[in-house]
Design a protein around this nucleic acid. Structure first.
Length: 568
RNA sequence: CGGAGAGUAGCUCAGCUUGGUAGAGCACCUGCUUUGGGAGCAGGGGGUCGCAGGUUCGAUUCCUGUCUCUCCGACCA
């Protein structure tokens, strides 16, 4: 591409509205332009990146045996009513009506649509397993779009859906997709981790996320420092330590703690470590009424785990201050398990504390020297808390460290949730109808572009990996203004550029006639991995100057196309 | 959805407190000069000051409403 004919639109200024580096650089480099909240247009240079990511995804999905389809972005409400998600989805789903007042949504995902088509076309066990995928625009009406295309409302996702006669077949395809995803992320050129995930409201059993590690990531990952364990903190389990609780030694004593409501306040006021404080949260119980959750003062509730506990309401909901007052006769800040009027479930760690401090279930008072079994009923225990840095790894190998990550992909074993709800059956070898198992697999294509930048940038701009750079190499002629050298520089640059194209290299020629500084700044900002300078100085000794975007210094190479190709 | 902030030129912003019909830098156009890390000089084009009301002789400025965008939080395949 000749840059003189390419609408590059770069900016020196950092846009005021962009909070994260990928958003800033994508705007400064002219990759994307904002159209509205969570709505972005992809400009020519951005599309080049997007298409390269898509090509890698498509190649690997095809190689893994998945079949590409294209489904409409607008989907009839009936399908969502069949699966039950029309009611479930809430405002995240953009609902629209056509001229006949029929209801539709702009597709946030396509489990229903693909299940519908499989129901139309697949009749026999002989046709399974099958895996359909598409690379297509999705819309989710996020409550708060942010960070440019990292969390936009409209975005491009690769979504795949597989159907199987047996759980074993599903598991095999899940592993197949997982391996394809690992190849995709590796080829794109990012540092990623595969972590255990919660499957969220999509349902299903086994689920893992592909995270691109980055400081600005919205997800926290718990990773063992010496073992294999890696999980989203949402899904990371914690265990009982195995060491028995110390015997009760302190005398139970009520202490006035006026106005001291939070664990931090009480801990400071009573000069007791946070991990010897037990807090009691009151939440809605599964069968109506309330249930208490005891946690150590330094731990936080994991609401996803709580919602899955059989005695706790799903969806998770805290009790209102009025309900607490009615049950306990005191304010929220003074609750504790001793003399507690409702059933208590203790987190493993909370149940292991002896001689603890807790609320006295009386305004402005706490208890010290409290003990399970002696003062409070021995509680039912469960894993209810968020894992924290320094916890032993749940698999017993190593200690947990926390990292931030950007979710770039997600693979699920859905089971029969959608196939059953939508009455998809195929005939087995005994001519009996069977409800197939289903898996689904997603990659955020537009998000991936942003995530790569989060991981790969410096003070001058983006450092694209070769595989997805808008151009792999840029040729910068210098000295076109000098009468005595212009002709030779121009000829050498044109020849090199032409031969690179002929060799199948995605090259750019900066023939805009700019000053060198401007060319360099632009090339660095838009992240071209390789730069060749064709100048009179070098040509005098038959040399080009070569610089990798991520190298500190340039080097001189022979002024031949083959010498350049050897560097790419 | 709760909290905070912002809408003035393509971009980044000033002006508004104390009303008198608008400015800078960057970008753009023309010319000259310059050419190894976003040059210099001279000239030029470009804005119904988000929108709608109100107050006023007069509103970018004051008041009310409204829309949009951003940030923090909650939420989230």
């Amino acid at each position: 591409m000749r840059l003189s004919r390419f609408p590059l639109s770069t900016s020196k200024e950092t846009p005021a509205d962009a909070a994260v580096v990928s958003h800033q650089l994508m705007l400064r480099g002219g990759f994307i332009r904002q159209l509205g909240s969570g709505l972005y247009s992809w400009m020519p240079i951005g599309v080049r990146v997007l298409r390269k990511i898509e090509a890698i995804v498509r190649e690997e999905m095809n190689a893994a045996g998945a079949m590409e389809i294209i489904t409409p972005t607008v989907q009839p409400a009936e399908l969502w009513q069949e699966s039950g998600r029309w009611a479930q989805m809430g405002d995240e789903m953009l609902r629209i009506k056509d001229r006949h007042k029929n209801e539709f949504c702009y597709g946030p995902t396509a489990e229903e649509v693909v299940t519908f088509h499989v129901r139309q076309d697949i009749r026999s066990y002989r046709q399974l397993p099958v895996n359909y995928y598409q690379i297509q625009t999705k819309f989710r009406d996020e409550r708060r779009p942010r960070f440019g295309v990292m969390r936009s409302r409209e975005f491009v996702m690769k979504d795949a859906y597989s159907f199987h006669m047996t759980e074993a077949s599903l598991a095999a395809e899940y592993d197949n997709m997982r391996a394809a995803y690992a190849r995709i992320f590796t080829r794109v050129g990012v540092d990623f981790r595969i972590v255990k995930a919660d499957s969220g409201n999509i349902g299903g059993s086994r689920s893992e996320e592909f995270h691109i590690l980055a400081q600005s990531g919205e997800d926290l990952l718990a990773v063992s420092d010496s073992g294999q364990y890696a999980a989203n903190v949402e899904a990371a389990e914690t265990r009982a330590s195995g060491t028995p609780r110390a015997a009760a030694s302190a005398v139970l004593e009520k202490v006035a703690t006026p106005g001291q409501k939070t664990c931090e306040q009480v801990s400071k006021f009573m000069k007791v470590a946070l991990d010897h404080k037990v807090k009691l949260l009151v939440v809605k119980a599964a069968k109506g009424g309330l249930v208490g959750i005891a946690l150590r003062g330094d731990h936080q509730l994991n609401e996803i785990k709580a919602a899955k506990h059989p005695k706790i309401a799903d969806p998770f909901q805290m009790a209102s201050p009025d309900e607490v007052k009615a049950a306990f006769g005191c304010e929220v800040g003074y609750l504790g398990p001793v003399g507690c009027p409702i059933a208590v479930i203790a987190d493993f760690a909370a149940a292991e504390v002896a001689d603890f401090v807790c609320g006295a279930n009386e305004d402005n008072h706490h208890l010290k020297g409290a003990n399970w079994g002696r003062d409070a009923a021995e509680p039912e225990t469960a894993d209810l808390r968020m894992i924290v840095e320094g916890d032993p790894s749940p698999d017993g190998v190593g200690t947990i460290k926390l990292y931030r990550g950007i979710e770039g992909g997600h693979v699920f074993q859905l089971g029969k949730k959608y196939t059953k709800a939508m009455s998809l059956t195929v005939l087995d070898e005994n001519q009996q109808p069977v409800t197939p198992e289903m898996g689904c697999y997603g990659i955020g294509v537009t998000r991936m572009a942003a995530a790569v930048i989060e991981q790969r940038n410096d003070a001058n701009g983006i450092l694209w990996p070769d595989a997805i750079a808008p151009f792999r190499v840029i040729v910068c002629p210098i000295g076109l203004d000098k009468a005595d050298t212009a002709a030779s520089v121009k000829a050498a640059a044109e020849t090199l550029y032409g031969e690179l194209l002929a060799a199948g290299v995605d090259a750019a020629l900066d023939d805009r006639g700019l000053r060198p500084g401007e060319m360099f700044k632009d090339a660095d900002l838009i992240g071209i991995p390789h730069r060749i300078i064709v100048g009179a100085k070098g040509l005098a000794t038959q040399q080009f100057e070569y610089k990798r975007r991520d190298a500190a210094a340039a080097e001189m190479i022979a002024a031949t196309t083959s010498a350049v190709l050897a560097k790419l």
